[in-house]
Design a protein around this nucleic acid. Structure first.
Lengths: 260, 260
DNA sequence: AGCAGCACGGTACACCGTACGGAGATCGCG
DNA sequence: CGCGATCTCCGTACGGTGTACCGTGCTGCT
């Protein structure tokens, strides 16, 4: 499993690809292209969805398209840019009705943002592992940013607070969903299930664990383990965190726009 | 930059290494060992601290120790287990006074937990990128878990809530600190600074960005960008999120143990 | 017809983790 | 003391990665 970087290539080329502003006048000399950016990107997304970011290699993508490996480089500068294009592309799937689905309140809207992102990361596990320090500033991300900002607009917050709030919710979801995929990724990578791993590990832990040194852990660990090792545990963690987070945001928003 | 897995090896061997329970009676046949687990692990930590997880290879660690690559495998089963040992080892650095430093309230204590973890991830950037779905259940992690649970003990929460709360704060910090490192990692990987990247990208964004389609982003983006692209931006994001999170936890804790 | 310019892709290089097996040091035992 | 067992150390090799470089041959314009 690799954490890929976004924004590793020439910004001019990257932006041109993201916004599909490749100048193409009439027909040009050379053989008709059988391949194009979209075919490469969607093959890569299919592969990453199905087998994870670790399985995403230029050779595998090329094989999926029945094409030589180096042919990909005619359409995409390199793997970094390909990942940028993949991410911006799938971000466009969010909010199909072109708005954050919600009732009237900010809390409904932010909850909808969180749940939409949660579903998104479930569909595209590999997106969790992308470093977005230099995000792909393409149409997909721009649209997402716009729609999510609207969810916190008109609450009496200044621009910086709006941005921080959207980032806070997004960061929380990304972190929470990590827990889901770390389980399935680990199973794929090791070939053993969570239960098998725990069954193999627990006896050794019991042997070395000192309940006198760690009394609180001895009390909490088993209960929490029992409860949170179940299949629905990540959802549970997500719901708990989301409730706390929205409560906390409520303190800020409530204080800003008056009581109520 | 690679996201490594923890818990990829034989649990028995892993646990024995983590808790250093290697049975060694008297002297054994064979040459005196010049290398041992601790030397391997600390060299690996030094390397990862200095050059990042991407630079952490068995060949590099061996070179650092002036030793053949395969010699490492005498003391450590593989890279996965090495990473486990690295993580559990550095986790032991947390809370040097063997307690969460704090005033009397739960909020002080949880804030101290968050800040301690923040500093920890600053010291060991590579730890952010470790998937902890199957955590290394060694003495370092156990001690951390115990001390952090004590910070939320006695508040009228049940065991599952205590665990969820500690996880929530830890997850938040890990996500926040990611922003710091994604910047420096990107600079190291690409050789261009944040400013250079933005200067190169911004003109192209200005050309394709449609302010009528994205009015909120057009209003918020520039202000937030100006404010949050500064060097202290990640700290700012961290402080903002932490305040919201603690406020939200306050709603739960306050309601549970009575008003006030 | 000739040529410029393009899509395609084979080969090669430097890196990775690690399986395998050999060399040589050191101990307990007879 | 001699020897076999057992240990540490490590050279070599295999299959994987991203991609630089360059050749091949198709296509449309002149």
């Amino acid at each position: 499993m690799a954490t890929e970087f976004t924004g590793t290539g020439d910004p001019a080329r990257s932006m041109a690809l993201l916004w599909r502003t490749g100048e193409e006048g009439g027909p040009r000399p050379g053989p008709r292209a059988g391949l194009d950016v979209d075919r490469v990107v969607s093959a890569a997304v299919r592969l990453a969805d199905a087998e994870g970011l670790a399985a995403l290699s230029m050779r595998r993508v090329a094989a999926e398209l029945d094409v030589g490996t180096m042919s990909l480089y005619t359409h995409v500068p390199g793997k970094g840019e390909l990942v940028d294009l993949m991410l911006d592309g799938v971000l466009g799937e969010l909010y199909p009705d072109d708005e954050v689905p919600a009732g009237g309140g900010w809390r409904d809207r932010l909850e909808a943002v969180a749940r939409a992102n949660w579903q998104f990361f479930l569909r595209h596990p590999w997106a969790v592992h992308l470093a977005t320090g230099r995000p792909p500033l393409g149409p997909g991300l721009m649209r997402k940013y716009e729609l999510e900002l609207r969810a916190v607009d008109g609450l009496g917050l200044d621009e910086v607070e709006m941005d921080l709030l959207v980032s806070l919710v997004n960061g929380f979801v990304r972190g929470s969903v990590g827990g889901v995929h770390e389980r399935s990724d680990a199973e794929r990578a090791t070939g053993t299930t969570e239960q098998q791993w725990w069954a193999a590990t627990e006896p050794y832990l019991a042997r070395v664990f000192d309940a006198e040194r760690f009394p609180t852990a001895a009390r909490v660990g088993p209960v929490a383990g029992e409860e949170l090792q179940a299949a629905y545990a990540p959802e549970r963690t997500f719901e708990f965190g989301l409730a706390r987070l929205l409560d906390g945001i409520g303190v800020l928003v409530g204080g800003r726009s008056g009581p109520g």
